[in-house]
Simulated scan of single mutants.
Amino acid sequence: MSQESPQPARPAVPPLKIFYVPGVTPGKWIARWTDRRGRALQALQADETQVLEDLRSGAADLVFLRIPEDGFERPSDLHAIPLYREQPVVAAAKDHPLSAFDEVQATDLAGENIMDAGELGTAATALEVVASGAGLLILPMSVARIHSRRDVLTRPVHGVAGTRIAVAWLQSTEDPDVEEFIGIVRGRTANSSRQPSAQGEPSKKVRKSTAKAPASDSRAAGGKGAGKPGKAGQGKPKAGKPGAGKPSRRRPGKGRG
């Protein structure tokens, strides 16, 4: 008695891997992805200095990164879409005179020691130095909120170079789910013709208009009564008002009969 050979198991599809820098909150996009797609998704926070390396090494399929508001040059091997501008804030020790203001201009900081966050290491370390009173620090509001401290105050600052959050992925990627997720980030609906998952499926709008086409054609051919069997005068226009569609026969000076 012959036995059927077992079918080889299909390889499991790995999760879509998304890395994001501190200050980015991708939860709303992940929720929409979960509602639409069956593929698992893995989201991890990454170091700002390493996030592009993670993308190029294949550790991430796409990344959310921080770029300068002006003057950003996209690397030739990447696609990148700027998403939104971040509000910069100035951080100072709690007893600093900035506590008297709700927000400040860059010119208000003249003469202050503005420290470089990159030279101080992590944002948490930089804010610890700020708390000591050694100087001020300008950073994105979202990052300042993550590392907020009771001994440090922050105020929105205007007139300084800002930052933007962008999403980036490799130009060489062939994974359609990367484009699917990018569409979600850009606000496309599940039925958008630009979404890979919706391509090849007729849209609801097309199906609806196609269903109505025969009725529209019959009305154009013979009016309201066209296409209904068993009625006298089929295809003939209904009688309207006397003289409708014909030149008036009334003589000048005569009233209506």
Rank of each mutant, 00 (worst) to 15 (best):
L55W: 02
R56A: 02
R56P: 04
R56K: 11
R56N: 07
R56V: 01
S57H: 11
G58N: 09
G58L: 10
A59P: 01
A59Q: 14
A59V: 10
A60N: 02
A60K: 04
A60M: 06
A60S: 09
A60R: 05
D61K: 02
D61G: 01
D61A: 05
D61S: 06
L62I: 01
L62C: 02
L62R: 01
L62F: 01
L62S: 01
V63N: 07
V63I: 15
F64E: 00
F64T: 00
F64Y: 12
L65K: 10
L65C: 10
L65M: 15
L65F: 07
R66N: 09
R66L: 05
I67C: 06
P68E: 04
P68D: 03
P68M: 04
P68F: 07
P68G: 04
P68Q: 01
E69W: 02
D70L: 12
D70W: 10
D70V: 14
G71L: 11
G71H: 13
G71M: 11
G71Q: 10
F72D: 07
F72N: 04
F72T: 03
E73M: 12
E73W: 08
E73P: 03
R74M: 14
R74G: 03
R74A: 10
R74D: 08
R74S: 12
P75H: 11
P75V: 07
S76K: 13
S76Q: 14
S76F: 12
D77Q: 09
D77G: 08
D77P: 11
L78A: 05
L78Y: 02
L78T: 00
L78M: 10
L78K: 09
H79M: 14
H79Q: 15
H79F: 15
A80N: 09
A80C: 15
A80G: 12
A80M: 15
A80I: 14
I81A: 06
I81C: 03
I81E: 11
P82I: 01
P82Y: 05
P82A: 09
P82E: 06
P82F: 03
P82M: 03
L83F: 09
L83P: 00
L83S: 08
Y84D: 07
Y84N: 04
Y84E: 11
Y84K: 02
Y84I: 00
Y84F: 12
R85F: 08
R85K: 15
E86F: 02
E86H: 11
E86C: 11
E86R: 14
